[in-house]
């Protein structure tokens, strides 16, 4: 049951997007997310949406998976849409009841915001769909490496992230096992009020803590045995190399960003 979750929701594939340098993917995702906020008219937003659609096609990630990533935020989208409809006023009034006024501007803003949130989520989940958690942390390590000037141990941080990702499924299994063991001894974990239930979780989390420390100790042992001494003098099997496709993607994104500003200039701003 809970052990079935996939970490970082990576979708195995070998598409153009999968093969791109994770650093470039990370940077471009960041750029796009920032510039989605620069969109002011429906046309510039449509440009980003089109680009995202093309990117989805190139990623070989099925549309169903993409939709699944939007599912958890549907409520947030609806909520902001409703708020926007009610509280933004301007332009033609379609409907009025007491102090509630639905106007053209309100509806436009609601749609605009909804599309914007969806785009943000789809763009960033496209990154996690096409990049393994390992290469993502690798990319972050390399992108942050200039910070080592300030004596920040970037490698150690990245290693901690990798290990955390690695142990999530292991610890979930462990929780499952401990909960079953406690249930077998008559613990009632699924009944009672909030306080009773939280109290019932104490005997689950204490063994979990203890076993986590034991695991950490053994892992440290195993890492020492494999000659791990920190980031210095380490090489990497997977070299990251920027290729033609990465620069192609970069130029496309720059073109999209330029397009955003051009369209903003020529068309009426919604917000």
């Amino acid at each position: 049951m809970i052990s079935e979750i996939t970490i970082g929701q990576y979708y195995t594939g070998d598409s153009l997007l999968h093969r791109m340098d994770p650093r470039m993917k990370f940077d471009l995702t960041f750029l796009l997310v920032v510039f989605v906020f620069a969109c002011k008219s429906f046309f510039s937003l449509a440009l980003v949406a089109m680009f995202t659609l093309v990117a989805i096609l190139f990623s070989s990630v099925p549309l169903k998976m993409i939709l699944r990533s939007i599912k958890p935020i549907v409520i947030i989208i609806l909520f902001t849409a409703v708020l926007n409809i009610i509280y933004t006023t301007g332009g033609e009034t379609y409907f009025k009841w007491r102090s509630i006024e639905i106007t053209e501007k309100g509806i436009n803003t609601a749609i605009f915001m909804a599309v914007r949130i969806i785009l943000l989520v789809v763009i960033s989940s496209l990154l996690t769909y096409t990049t393994t958690p390992t290469s993502l942390t690798d990319a972050i390590e390399r992108l942050l490496s200039p910070l080592s000037v300030f004596h920040i141990k970037v490698h150690t941080l990245a290693m901690m992230m990798t290990l955390a990702l690695r142990f999530i499924p292991t610890l979930i299994e462990e929780i499952d096992r401990i909960m079953n063991a406690q249930k077998a001894r008559g613990a009632e974990l699924e009944t009672g009020g909030l306080i009773a239930r939280s109290k019932a979780l104490v005997p689950v989390f204490i063994p979990l803590m203890v076993s986590s420390f034991r695991r950490a100790y053994e892992l440290a042992f195993a890492m020492t045995c494999r000659c791990y001494t920190g980031g210095e003098g380490r090489t990497r099997m997977k070299q990251m190399k920027l290729r033609a496709r990465d620069f192609l993607a970069l130029f496309t994104v720059i073109a999209v960003i330029a397009g955003i500003f051009v369209l903003n200039h020529f068309f009426e701003a919604v917000i």
């Binding site: 990798t162 791990y228 099997m237």
Partner: peptide
């Protein structure tokens, strides 16, 4: 090699884990 396989695997992908040792030794990629 230790008793509990879960507590000695470092990476989230099999081949990355196998590469962990040689990477620590500074072997050519």
């Amino acid at each position: 090699v230790f008793q509990n396989p879960d507590n000695q695997i470092v990476a989230t992908i099999v081949e990355d884990d196998v590469a962990f040792g040689p990477e620590n030794l500074g072997v050519e990629p």
